[in-house]
């Protein structure tokens, strides 16, 4: 297992959060500055979560691509919905295709629309929820609430 350079990115980020919380926030008077400091702590906590996990979307794109392939196999008529779909990246193209299929399902009452709602939509909702949870430290810090440090 490779040995990390020290201090690690996480140690630096943790130190920054601690410093903002304990040394900067208690001495900030301005409301906007206090909110910004709290929000900065939230972004640093998000960054800590990011480097501890997976910073890339590839696995999620793979999963969406797999479900779309299944849908197209079972409902070849859906191919027409994806004509002209493109993007600079694979992730963009796959999510554009998912967008087209979800929109198609809104406007149609059919077996293929049901399949989109039953197979693709739950995956997209779950991925959005996962991303929300990853970014949650920023949301909880958004209101500028100091955590342990109260004035």
């Amino acid at each position: 297992m490779p040995e990390a350079k020290r201090p690690t990115v996480d140690e630096v980020l943790a130190g920054a959060v601690h410093t903002i919380e304990n040394q900067l926030l208690p001495n900030l008077e301005d409301t906007w500055a206090r909110a910004a400091a709290s929000q900065l702590m939230g972004t640093l906590e998000y960054a800590r979560g990011l480097i501890a996990g997976d910073e890339h979307v590839d696995a999620r794109v793979d999963a969406v691509e797999g479900v779309i392939a299944d849908l197209l196999r079972d409902h070849p008529g859906l191919e027409a919905m994806l004509e002209g779909s493109e993007g600079e990246t694979r992730g963009f193209r796959v999510l554009d295709q998912a967008s087209r299929l979800l929109s198609h399902a809104v406007a149609n009452d059919s077996a293929e629309a049901d399949a989109i709602r039953e197979q693709l939509r739950p995956l997209i909702v779950q991925q959005a929820t996962d991303t929300l949870n990853e970014t949650m430290p920023m949301l909880t810090a958004f209101g500028g609430r100091p955590r342990r440090v109260e004035r």
Partner: peptide, 28 residues
């Protein structure tokens, strides 16, 4: 590059996406 921009563009947006997708899912 202020942190409120990062929060608004990600978590705050996604909380709204979650809210609306729940209502649309209920309509289905």
């Amino acid at each position: 590059p202020a942190p409120n921009m990062a929060a608004i563009g990600t978590a705050l947006k996604l909380s709204m996406v979650q809210h609306l997708s729940t209502i649309i899912g209920m309509s289905y």
